[in-house]
Design a protein around this nucleic acid. Structure first.
Lengths: 213, 213
DNA sequence: CATAAATAATTTGTATACAAAAATAAAACG
DNA sequence: CGTTTTATTTTTGTATACAAATTATTTATG
């Protein structure tokens, strides 16, 4: 068994949040969710706590949680932090990236390329897998975990990132450029590309949120 | 009721971790903890998950958790990230800091000053309250929450920060300098002081961890 | 004797039931 | 009427009991 039951619950809940299948701005009822997903309240509570800790839910009243409202400021901050932290992590990683890692990254890139009609959440997951695979060799658990958390938070905005602006091809180009820079051990160029990659994605998202939400 | 029951459990557990009262390097047993704190396993599980999400615990085996081992690399990364992120947050905050906020900060400073014999964890908590009080006016939830998380993680090292090097007076001087810079709306100076404050604390901690653990 | 397979023990995960707390509705009072 | 108090309902928090999974131990096998 690769994926535990509770992980499925977690994924389903996230999916339903992204798809807008759950009420916004009001407290989520444990009993209601328990019925919806066919489990008891205990695993629901576990999952809610997890999603709260990951920033997808926020407190509502004294002891309830609700779906975190999206806003441009938060998005801006998330990308600003990524801009400051991820290059550090990549810099640590580059000297340790071998051909296996590069190959793995290429495989993920290909999956992103070919399966464009995939579920939006899975697309986001693949994108993270790509970055994650390049960051892991850094062997900096604390840095890595914070970056992972920032990606999880950004994942909340995944529905917007791709929706209008045909962002994916552009993003893919940057991914490729990044791999080339890394494979030639050109730290400076890799850093530049990653910076642009994050900056552009952030700008586009924030811009969209400011003007239309 | 200001503090919920589960928060007490959380505090107690953290305290016992800092004080070395719980076994390191092996899985913590839910039943054992439940007996120790006189509750059932349910709230224990909640607290363990919370502490895991906050980085104080890590996975052990397939479904257990253990106390996260301390190491210099992690500490270095934590302070490195604080160094990059906190100044941004403070910069946002400064224009919004009024006399009430300054007064509150001074009160906390005083508490830190007078009660030097306080419990080490409470000392750490006061230190965070000081920073927190200056960061809140920024009204940047995403930035703030990440900074809060980094402080929580740093809190794991609190037992070391003060133990040997008589760090507290130095830290207090920097706190005062920071308040002065803020009250004169000197953003640049505030930024400089905060930078030093974090850098020095980080360097001393990392240095200590590298040489003696 | 080392390794693998099977079994037994422990430990975690989840359902149900009940207690505590919070949110809502109703009643009292100005 | 609007506001505060009290009562009712709903919802969450926790204990207990049991199922599922993991870990430890034993037994079998080369």
């Amino acid at each position: 068994m690769q994926l535990k039951k509770i992980d499925n619950l977690y994924i389903q809940l996230k999916r339903d949040i992204v798809h807008g299948a759950l009420p916004q701005g009001q407290a989520l009822k444990q009993t209601q969710l328990a019925m919806r997903y066919g489990v008891s309240r205990i695993p629901i509570r576990d999952t809610l706590q997890r999603l709260k800790n990951e920033g997808w839910l926020v407190n509502h009243g004294k002891s309830g949680v609700m779906i975190r409202p999206l806003n441009a400021n938060d998005a801006e901050d998330l990308y600003l932090m990524r801009l400051h932290i991820e290059p550090m992590l990549l810099a640590h990683a580059i000297p340790n990236i071998n051909f296996e890692t590069l190959g793995k990254a290429k495989d993920i890139l290909q999956q992103l390329q070919t399966n464009e009609q995939r579920d939006i959440l899975q697309q986001g997951e693949l994108n993270w897998q790509f970055h994650r695979c390049l960051y892991l060799p850094a062997q900096r658990p604390a840095l890595f975990e914070t970056v992972a958390q920032l990606h999880r938070l950004c994942g909340r905005y995944i529905g917007f990132q791709e929706m209008k602006l045909d962002y994916l091809p552009h993003s893919q180009d940057e991914h490729k450029a990044l791999l080339i820079a890394i494979s030639t051990q050109d730290s400076q160029e890799a850093n530049r590309v990653l910076n642009e990659h994050i900056r552009i994605a952030g700008e586009q998202l924030v811009n969209y949120l400011r003007h239309s939400v």
